[in-house]
């Protein structure tokens, strides 16, 4: 499977792997402590500080690495939460049909009609923003999108004869969902997962930039942009590094998602 990877997917895989490894081994590779002031304000890049320092003299590379850790951790957890809830509920709705489907789908429509950023702002203004609350809020808000996709895919699959055969055998809901439908719905869901992960990265960065996401002294990419945005007025590029990181990670993950989509939804294979 790893042979014949198109160039674009290879680039995507490499860059994404670098970001994830940096996040996982942050403690090992970061040159300084996360909140340690080690130099002057907004020092230019040098041998000691590869990316220079930030607005209170912390090493920017260190901040970027720890920031990446927080951002990627929250985005990953929120994506997993959003997919498990969204897909499970979507499958249940599709397989059950009737009024269960109606109630669930209309509730989801209701939530989707409120812009999720505004909803998140409202909720976070009343509760404390920790990693856990952020993951739960982001994950649940996003699961409405996953629900819609999972339901649409599962509705198609649930009318197949093999699902009917399983029902006639007397199988319970769990078997039908996890053994008959899920394996056949996996490829569109996995491709979607890549895209949703990126939306999560953007979402958490947006929240932090607005000051209600990850709270200092914890670093995250959106927060670093916020902290250093004044520097742009003085020609200091510190705020641009996290922007570049967000952009490259987004594009890389999208390249992988495209590749998975291409592999699994070719004209010949369908969902096969």
């Amino acid at each position: 499977m790893l042979k014949n990877i198109p160039l674009s997917a290879a680039i995507g895989l490499t860059i994404t792997a670098v970001y994830f490894l940096a996040a996982i081994f942050a403690d090992v590779i970061a040159p300084y402590g996360m909140a340690e002031a080690v130099g002057d304000v907004w020092e230019p890049s040098s041998a000691e500080h590869w990316l220079g320092t930030d607005q209170i003299g912390r090493d920017l590379l260190t901040r970027m690495i720890y920031g990446g850790q927080t951002t990627i951790l929250i985005a990953t957890l929120a994506t997993i939460l959003s997919f498990t809830t969204g897909a499970t509920l979507g499958f249940i709705a599709a397989v059950s049909g009737g009024w269960i489907d109606q109630i669930m789908s209309r509730l989801v429509d209701l939530f989707m009609s409120i812009p999720s950023l505004i909803l998140a702002l409202v909720i976070l203004s009343s509760i404390e923003a920790t990693v856990v609350t952020l993951v739960i809020i982001m994950g649940l808000l996003d699961s409405t999108r996953v629900y819609r996709l999972a339901r649409a895919v599962a509705v198609d699959i649930s009318v197949m004869d093999y699902v009917e055969a399983a029902r006639l055998r007397g199988e319970k809901l769990a078997w039908i969902i996890f053994r008959e439908i899920l394996p056949n719905a996996l490829s569109p869901l996995v491709a979607e997962m890549g895209l949703r992960f990126i939306f999560m990265v953007l979402f958490i960065s947006t929240l932090s930039f607005l000051g209600i996401g990850v709270q200092p002294p914890l670093a995250d990419w959106g927060g670093i942009v916020k902290e250093n945005k004044e520097g742009i007025n003085f020609g200091i590029g510190a705020a641009l590094y996290p922007a570049v990181a967000i952009a490259t990670l987004s594009i890389s993950v999208n390249l992988i998602a495209d590749w998975i989509l291409n592999r699994t939804t070719s004209l010949k294979g369908g969902r096969g």
Partner: peptide, 18 residues
């Protein structure tokens, strides 16, 4: 359920491809 089984016209769609 056990004693009453069914075989379908399209064997393709009657078996889970996965």
């Amino acid at each position: 359920l056990r004693e009453l089984q069914m075989i379908y016209q399209m064997a393709d769609t009657a078996m889970n491809p996965r």
